[in-house]
Design a protein around this nucleic acid. Sequence first.
DNA 1: GACGCTAGTTCTTCCACAGGGCTTT
DNA 2: CTAAAGCCCTGTGGAAGAACTAGCG
Length: 410
Amino acid sequence: MGYLCDFCGEQRSIVYCRSDAASLCLSCDRNVHSANALSRRHSRTLVCERCNSQPAFVRCIEERISLCPNCDWVGHAGSNVSPAHKRQAVNCYSGCPSAAELSAIWSFLLDLPSVGDSTCEQGMGSMSISDNKPRDCQGSQGKNNTQDASFLVEDSDLNNMDVNKATVCIESCTSLDPKLQNADQLAGSSNSVMPKVFLPGEKGPVECEDDGFYDEFNMDEVDLSIENYEELFGVAHNPEDLFDNDGIDGLFGLKDMSGSDCHGAYPEGSSVGGMKMQPACSNAASADSVVSCKTEPNLCFTRQAHSSLSFSGLNGETSAADYQDCGVSSIVIMGEPPWGPPGPESSIPPSSRSDAVMRYKEKKKTRKFEKKVRYASRKARADVRRRVKGRFVKAGDAYDYDPLSQSRSC
DNA sequence: GACGCTAGTTCTTCCACAGGGCTTT
DNA sequence: CTAAAGCCCTGTGGAAGAACTAGCG
């Protein structure tokens, strides 16, 4: 018996939600993440079956066990016995996929003891996959939601990654190594999502080929979240600062990492810590499109400090999924962003107070990046609790805001 | 330079209540 | 010493309003 679900405390936890920092059984996963549009966007993956506390990113085929980067490292890279084990990348998913769809995502899913469990299986029945896949930088919407997990990962590939130096987290758990792409192709996946990591010399996604901004890029498009800014940039930071900005002109203009406002401290194209920072969609797509097409921080960079780059062990609280739940994500839900259309005219200051307020509210939401939810169950309840002017109301009382229905009782 | 005003931004407070954690039995 | 029961306090998100900051005359 593994660790119990953080929500019901009865079923064995199967999946890990980084946004909630919670391990959940499939039934509760469905219940919690079907609560509202935002929760459906939570990116989940299997929970590490060794430490039972971190999200798994790879599955050892020999041992038939899902492992987090750290346990994988300990079990494989640090072992003389099992480094040759074949491993399969474990994909993240969002929405409320059915058991069948989950099986499609995780072909090994049937190995899991709790899948097929009556309680959970029933709960999965009404699920459907929602589309929150990372999009390409030009706004072409994610064409595939189902993330094929049929990548065989050569041990050497994984071992080349320094999972202990959790620096960069690729949103898609499959984006571990360019070789995965080849493996994917070899596997003949029809609906796989191409990993977004490209080594120098490799051709990036078609979507970015015409983008002059990427001409010099060795890594055309990387969706990442920074877990250790100090290590990455060599300066103090605040995660929120990456998004602490004043509208479109500052959306991806990194701020003074020491905490005080300093717009343009890292102008477009400037080299930071050996990495060339660029807005992911710095021209036609614009920050607007970035927000629309991608909910995590999109940072394209030239991997100048090649050896210094390492991929996250997915063990931090500030994973890509965390950002996914931030205000940036909410922009997509709420429709048009408060700022105007992209382009030169975007530098025009907001003309109305309402725009400023809206901008501030979006900004405020992004600030919640730094907030660590200690109790996922409380968050889940708060997320669905009815309110009056933002305050919780007694059950049964009149309310003016219902997160579940977005409606009013009066 | 000090002052007042305006606008924009940031911070604090409030609410209900499940559940964590501590004390008592 | 362990388990159960009871109680107290924490933490959760959205909105309002206070507080703060910057710019201008």
